[in-house]
């Protein structure tokens, strides 16, 4: 079983979706995340084991490599796709079992901003690390965030912005959310945003890359 977990972790790390997928070239003809996940479940592994021993370790490596600049968006998306393929097998089991997720993460690109690549990467990485992710999409208003927090009071909120003009809306959202829910944790990210800005608007965390968000969530969860 150990060997299969490690092979599955490799599939996530290198983005091998299934046997027919041509990517990555050096995995050609081998089974991928799809087949191996089915195989380990058939051998009796629990969904939680698959998550903890294969998917999360694989995704963590992806996060670190992305942060270090050895892989880029296309590679991360391939890994995310491999992860999703594995999750198709796990989700029904996770739903019926008493599996504990590490927490809930509510993410959206702020009002006025339609960009979603960065937000999607963060959502995938966070999900891949064992959190439930509620993706609110792009152009998300203050009210929409507030309503979502009311529904999932234990969540952590993540705000994304690509534009210099919409990053200003982050301030509005953080202010409003904190007024209504003083203990609500909010983290921010996006190309024009930095630590200085994060402090200025009173957000709890800024991350330059998706792995940073995972690290922040893990600190809160532990």
């Amino acid at each position: 079983m150990e060997e299969l977990f490690s092979k599955l972790a490799d599939c996530i790390e290198f983005g091998k979706i299934d046997e027919v997928s041509p990517y990555p070239p050096n995995f050609k003809g081998q089974t991928g995340a799809d087949e191996i996940t089915a195989q380990v479940l058939a051998k009796g592994a629990s969904a939680q084991d698959v998550l903890n021993n294969a998917l999360i370790p694989g995704m963590e490596k992806v996060g670190v490599k992305f942060r270090e600049g050895t892989i880029f968006v296309p590679q991360v998306l391939m890994s995310a796709k491999a992860m999703k393929t594995a999750m198709v097998h796990l989700k029904p089991l996770l739903k019926q079992g008493n599996v504990k997720q590490k927490g809930t993460f509510v993410i959206g690109t702020v009002e006025g901003d339609l960009h979603d690549i960065g937000k999607n990467l963060v959502a995938m990485m966070v999900e891949g690390n064992g959190y439930e992710v509620i993706d609110m999409g792009t152009d998300v208003s203050v009210d929409a965030f507030v309503q979502q927090i009311e529904k999932t009071p234990d969540c952590v909120v993540g705000l994304s912005a690509l534009l210099t003009t919409t990053m200003v809306n982050m301030e509005k959202i953080v202010k409003n959310v904190k007024e209504k829910f003083p203990h609500q944790k909010v983290c921010i990210g996006g190309a024009p945003v930095n630590n200085e800005f994060c402090d200025k608007i009173g957000a709890d965390n800024y991350s330059a890359d998706p792995q940073g968000v995972v690290d922040f969530l893990n600190t809160l969860a532990s």
């Binding site: 997928s21 990517y23 296309p74 590679q75 998306l77 391939m78 979603d116 690549i117």
Partner: peptide, 10 residues
């Protein structure tokens, strides 16, 4: 759209 990133590989 962003499909291009995966299409580059596939």
């Amino acid at each position: 759209g962003t499909d291009i990133f995966m299409q580059m590989m596939m």
